[in-house]
Design a protein around this nucleic acid. Structure first.
Lengths: 415, 415
DNA sequence: AGCATTAAATATAGGAACTAGATTTATTTC
DNA sequence: GAAATAAATCTAGTTCCTATATTTAATGCT
């Protein structure tokens, strides 16, 4: 509000310091001026000045009763500042083929609420998609009594290639364009939100690098293994996108021997099991024969395999052999540290992993990449979406004007 | 030398301005203070101050007779500054299996001299390799009467995976380790040079992006097609490296249908032609039958194909069909704009390109990537090495202390 | 030749953001 | 209640920048 204008040059310094201090405080407990002096190398005067600036902007606040937090004894009590995790909220959405899940978190990525909503069918219209997406997010916000104005960023994962600007264009594939009917613009126009759209496998990769099996790694690949395979490739900590967001597209598997298609583990486990069951002579004692054909799904197959059912074991074995080839291809070309198999049933992939481990040395020279199953199950995409929103907000923090501190409706009676 | 110390904060501003001005001047004609004011947004006083600083450091100099350069008429003549392309020199080396080529350039990448030297055999020792490399660079410098102290950076391309630090370790492949026997350390210890080592395909990619078929593109792949295939992958303007520098390794082609190995076009054209010639019944009239078997090499095959020889044409056709599959794999997974086929004979790849263009739609959905042949021939790696050195020097300019202005030996007679 | 015009250089004053060191202040400990 | 302590606050002083006034070295016109 104060119309002070400083030169672009000097503002650069202040901006860098604001950024450094905010970064330091984002994920830590309340810190003192001296703490910040040590971590930033600035003098005390500057540190407090910067902190007051950040407090003014609403990102941090000064902790009043200092005694409670610190365990020091002597000297004048230090001023303590603390990051405001509720200065705004983030929304991460997994906007899949069949349903939408929205997760609302604070600025540290701690979940506040989740809310989901199914589409009427897999072939739902673009209009329905946008409407359901919108209502799912609003529903989640309402659950936690949060106002739309508190949302600093909404990130949405869709099963389609997405370019840097969050758009899906020029793909000559109507399915993909329907999956992402310019969500960015829609959310901005309708709710005024900063929206980020990304490919679901890319977001799953972000999730794995944050809270999953890729934690701490700068080079890894996440393979989404549901109906169709899709890879999220992280190289030197950066997500690969490609020209139109198509990086990680697995259609090339058509050409790989022993693979032949980009069909996912979820689909194949079901299809292969059904196919085998059609011939009454193969594994006549299999427990899967007790189920109706339409009840044979990935979950049933993995459950049977876990119980050592011979037919299911054979399917899992075959899936593992196939995966070994897929994983090798990626590992060799990209020289990656780890490949994470993600998907709703990733918790049941131990059998597949065993086979991959056995076959990998046939195709890859040492050092071999680590192949692991995701621990995030079907939450990978929405967690990754939250992370995407979080990254954006951390990056843009100084350009963001925070909503007023407490938009909770004031008590009905006058002061 | 002047022991002034400014705070890290204020130094950041000055550094950013030095960088901006130096960057502006690197590739342009002499510029005036007013030009720089427009491009940097700084005031005149600051611009001249920064320029004097840069002149002091030796990167630029003030042009004396201003009239000659400008075409202005009125007003007080402007001070003009010009980048010093000979403030130091760069060396780019292609250190291959059979020979070494060193290119010396000025700071704008304009070639001053080239010098090459063959190894005693493809199985030469690490010691010989380092020695020949060393002598090739010194030979090139001597040709242009340049002192070793003028070298600001030496970049070396080797046929091996190389990590970010320029080392080849942990590959369990003695050939690779012999190709890069810690060249960085050797050149630093023996000559005091800043050395950068990189994979040859990566450097070829840099060359293509600079002066070749990838010029201006942020996403493209360069395929080295000589004896063994190797890819240099550029994504968002950045070279992919992978954990140990192995990104772009093509061993995964073992698993690709209709490909089966990472053997290069150079090797296959020769092998396939020889194989066909062994059966006297296939194409008995082929002009290649006039050559001794040991004279059948890639060059001969492509020359014959250009003259419509049926046997050679069949080989080229087969190569094209194979390349289409390889190119598709990369294009789909990486969603790249263009794939450049590089190699000593890239000038003769028109036949191959025709076949690729025909086959590509079988494997890739539109929009199709552009496939092009390199125009750089066997210079791709050394040009890329120069570019690597240039990038390093531009990046590190402010940290580099330039050698004294004119190390040319003073005339023998006194003043 | 001499003077107006012009575009740049130079000089002067002032501000933002930082550092450094002296002084003050709020605590705990003895 | 005084000493010890660690931090806050205050007072200069720095660097690097901007803004504006003044000066300078050309050209062009009479």
């Amino acid at each position: 509000m104060s119309g002070k204008k400083s030169s672009t040059s000097t503002r650069q310094i202040r901006e860098a310091n604001l950024r450094a201090v905010l970064h330091d405080m984002w994920d830590s407990d309340p810190v003192t001026g001296s703490d910040l002096m040590a971590s930033t190398g600035l003098t005390r005067a500057t540190v407090h000045d910067v902190c007051e600036d950040l407090a003014h902007r609403g990102w941090i606040h000064e902790v009043e009763n200092q005694r409670e937090h610190g365990d020091y004894r002597l000297g004048r009590p230090a001023r303590r500042y603390c990051f405001q995790p509720m200065a705004g909220v983030l929304v991460g959405v997994d906007c899949g083929q069949d349903m939408t899940v929205a997760t609302v978190t604070d600025l540290r990525g701690r979940t506040l609420t989740r809310h989901d909503h199914a589409f009427s069918s897999t072939e739902h219209s673009a209009e329905e998609r946008l409407d359901v997406l919108s209502r799912t997010v609003l529903g989640a916000l309402e659950k936690a009594s949060l106002a739309a104005s508190q949302v600093l960023a909404v990130a949405v994962g869709v099963p389609a290639p997405v370019d840097v600007d969050g758009r899906t264009v020029g793909t000559a594939n109507p399915f993909w364009e329907r999956m992402n009917p310019n969500i960015v613009e829609y959310l901005a126009d309708r709710h005024g939100w900063t929206a980020l759209v990304d490919n679901d496998a890319n977001l799953a990769a972000l999730a794995e690098g944050w809270r999953g099996a890729g934690r701490g790694l700068r080079n890894f690949v996440t393979l989404l293994t549901g109906e169709a395979l899709g890879a999220g490739i992280v190289e030197e900590g950066r997500l690969l996108r490609g020209v139109r967001g198509g990086a990680g597209e697995m259609r090339f598997l058509d050409l790989v021997e022993g693979v032949g298609s980009p069909t996912g583990i979820g689909a194949l486990s079901r299809d292969w099991a059904r196919e085998a069951l059609r011939d009454p002579k193969t594994h006549p004692t299999s427990s899967l024969r007790k189920l109706a054909p339409e009840d044979i799904d990935a979950e049933a197959v993995f459950a049977a395999a876990a119980a050592a059912d011979p037919l299911a074991t054979e399917v899992v074995e075959r899936l593992g052999a196939r995966c070994a080839r897929i994983v090798s291809t990626l590992a060799v070309l990209l020289d990656t540290d780890r490949i994470v198999l993600a998907g709703a049933l990733s918790g049941s992939y131990t059998g597949i992993l065993r086979t991959i481990e056995r076959d990998l040395p046939r195709y890859v020279h040492p050092p071999l990449p680590v192949v692991a199953a995701s621990e995030l199950g079907d939450e990978a995409v929405s967690i990754g979406a939250v992370r995407r929103a979080l990254d954006h907000v951390r990056e843009q923090a100084l350009e963001i004007e925070l909503p007023p501190a407490h938009p909770v409706p004031a008590p009905a009676h006058p002061s």
